[in-house]
């Protein structure tokens, strides 16, 4: 039982990080109806940025997060200005294609700057040991949990109560209406790309703290994609719940199923199997936006 609870707790923390990264997907999807294929590569960049600021510059964790957020803001603004602005009003498919290109460019940049090497830095994160009964929560998980919960909360408050948050939700509904009341669509897009890159980069640092920064971090994008599909593509709450579910499933599967199968690896597939089963019964995901039909 202790073993199980231990897996659930670390899975919860991992799931929260997935949820955070998945929010980047949801934000872009809500504003421009396009899947951002490069979301996983934001995570990759984040992992390496964590290494640069923590190890190379020797900053503390809060300084690292701050610097990474600054870098993410610049990155998001550049991406919107250079790549996406010319595509306003163009078909969604064009936007998706351009994010594929963006993913490749970011992956290439990471290789150029950090040499695609494995960089570990989990020793540099502060150690906080939390003991709940017989379960001990590892400090990477705890930091991951705290940072991602705080970020998600800030993000939700931002969308709910600020003016630009309202503008973003409105843009998700109808671009033309939004333009007709004087909201600049480009500002909304810029903010959404900045948010997507911030959550990606933060997620990257947190995951990098657990497993080290390496090129495989980009695959987290695929996992975040599964989270988004499971939660319902338009739902922020759905992404959070689905992220936690997938994180727990993955961890529990890693604990119980991997030893059964020689070679392991079942843990990585298991969440996707669950996703497929859920989607068979709820094609819009767990909390997909209900299409409003008036009677």
């Amino acid at each position: 039982m202790t073993f199980f609870l231990q897996l659930v707790v670390t899975g919860f923390a991992l799931g929260m990080i997935y949820a955070l990264i998945a929010l980047g997907f949801v934000i872009i999807l809500k504003c421009s109806e396009a899947f951002n294929i490069a979301q996983g590569h934001f995570v990759l960049i984040g992992g390496y940025l964590g290494y640069t600021f923590l190890v190379t510059f020797g900053l503390p964790i809060w300084g690292t997060l701050l610097m990474a957020i600054l870098t993410a803001i610049i990155m998001g603004l550049l991406i919107e200005r250079l790549i996406l602005r010319p595509l306003v009003g163009q078909p969604v498919l064009a936007v998706i294609m351009v994010t594929i290109a963006l993913a490749t460019v970011l992956g290439g940049l990471a290789t150029l700057i950090w040499g695609a090497e494995y960089k570990a830095y989990h020793g540099l994160l502060p150690t906080i040991n939390l003991q709940i009964g017989s379960i001990s929560v590892p400090s990477e998980s705890l930091i991951g949990l705290i940072v991602s919960i705080v970020t998600v909360a800030i993000l939700m408050l931002f969308l709910r109560y600020t003016k630009i948050g309202l503008a973003m939700r409105a843009t998700a509904e109808d671009l033309q209406v939004v333009q007709s009341v004087g909201i600049k669509a480009t500002t909304v897009y810029a903010v959404s790309w900045v948010i997507a890159s911030i959550v990606g980069v933060i997620g990257g640092i947190l995951l990098g703290g657990v497993s080290g920064a390496n090129m495989e971090l980009a695959e987290i994008g695929l996992k975040a994609f599964a989270v988004v599909l499971l939660g319902g593509v338009n739902s922020i709450g759905g992404a959070i719940v689905a992220g936690i579910i997938l994180g727990m499933l993955e961890n529990v599967a890693a604990g119980y199923l991997d030893p059964l199968l020689p070679g392991g690896g079942l843990a990585k597939v298991f969440p996707f199997i669950v996703m497929i089963i859920v989607l068979i019964f709820r094609p819009y995901g767990l909390f997909g936006l209900v299409r409003i039909e008036r009677i």
Binding site: L166, R169, A170, E173, D174, Q176, V177, V181, G182, I183
Partner: peptide, 18 residues
């Protein structure tokens, strides 16, 4: 063209964005 998933009041607030 109402913003369907926003409340009535939020719709009005969007109008006052500028």
């Amino acid at each position: 063209r109402v913003l369907e998933h926003l409340s009535v009041e939020e719709n009005l607030l969007v109008g006052a964005y500028c």
